[in-house]
Computed example of a mutant assay.
Amino acid sequence: MNKNNLQTYRFEDDGVIPNNPNLPVLFYPGAFSEQLERTEETFNENNWRNSWTNGVFDFHHYHSNAHEVLGVVQGTAILQLGGEKGKSLDIKKGDVIILPAGTGHKRLQSSDDFKIVGAYPDGMEHNLKTEKEEDRLFASEDISKVPLPDADPVFGYNGPLLKEWNVR
């Protein structure tokens, strides 16, 4: 696993998707390229739990009450991050994306075998918000109350997330 490939992305509120006003998306290309089978286990060991394996919805959505990590364990995809005015990101097996609460994400396309592992800091339960106007009512307030995680889901207590999100 390599910490040096970190890429960060910031997204503004676009009037539909709130995104996160303070925290960037973190992208670790190839974080698990050599130990793919340890993706979920590593997330869980670093206290990112309540994990699942599946895909990514093909509509814009976000979680206003939890941060989320996504680790690609199979296949490839193009995700749209940050809403319609955001960024398209090509992801592949071994890549990891950490989405701060409020960050919009949507699957634009994927290979037939695409699968990700998702998890949340401290095993938090997450909500599902979409582009509906009523989903925005308390979203900004919810986002501001989400606690910072104790550890980076990939690199633990010495990971880049701690610096990038000013955890310590």
Rank of each mutant, 00 (worst) to 15 (best):
K145R: 15
E12Q: 13
F59T: 13
L137Y: 12
K163V: 11
K93M: 15
G104H: 02
L70M: 13
N50Y: 11
I91T: 05
F32L: 04
N65F: 03
D152I: 04
G83E: 08
K87F: 09
G83W: 06
T39G: 09
L137F: 13
L89E: 05
L161A: 02
M124H: 12
L81V: 13
K92L: 07
D95N: 11
A119C: 10
N4G: 15
E68R: 04
F114N: 05
S33T: 15
P24W: 00
D95L: 09
V73M: 10
V56P: 04
P29H: 02
L148V: 06
K106V: 03
N54W: 12
N5R: 13
D112M: 11
F11G: 00
T53P: 00
G82C: 00
F11C: 03
F57R: 12
W48Y: 10
A66K: 04
G104T: 05
T53N: 10
L23R: 12
G83Y: 02
N65D: 15
V56F: 04
K115R: 15
G102L: 04
P147I: 04
L99N: 09
I98C: 07
Q35N: 14
F32E: 02
M124K: 12
S140L: 15
N47H: 15
D152L: 05
G30C: 10
D113Q: 11
R107P: 04
G156K: 03
I143Y: 00
N5E: 14
D90S: 12
Q7T: 15
I97K: 03
V16P: 01
F11A: 01
D152F: 03
K115W: 06
H67C: 03
P149C: 07
K92F: 09
S64C: 13
D58T: 12
I17W: 02
N166R: 07
P160D: 08
E134L: 06
G83V: 08
K163G: 07
V146G: 00
G159C: 07
S51F: 07
G159P: 00
L89F: 05
N54H: 13
S33W: 05
K132H: 09
V16H: 02
H60V: 07
P121E: 03
E41F: 05
E84L: 12
G156R: 04
H60I: 10
H126R: 11
D95T: 09
Y9W: 11
K87T: 14
H60T: 11
Q80G: 05
Y62A: 03
L162H: 00
Y62S: 01
G71Y: 08
T76G: 02
Q109N: 12
I98Y: 00
D135C: 05
L162S: 02
F43Y: 12
K163P: 00
N46S: 09
T39E: 05
F155S: 09
Y9V: 03
E12H: 12
G104I: 00
N46V: 09
R136I: 06
L128Y: 14
L23I: 02
V167S: 00
D14K: 06
W165V: 03
L99E: 06
L70Q: 08
M124G: 07
K132F: 11
E12F: 07
F138G: 08
I143H: 01
N50I: 10
S33C: 13
P24V: 01
I17M: 07
N50P: 07
S111E: 08
K87I: 14
Q80D: 08
Y157N: 15
G123F: 06
W48E: 04
R10M: 08
W48Q: 11
T76V: 10
L70Y: 07
K3M: 15
G156Q: 04
E84T: 11
A151P: 01
A77T: 12
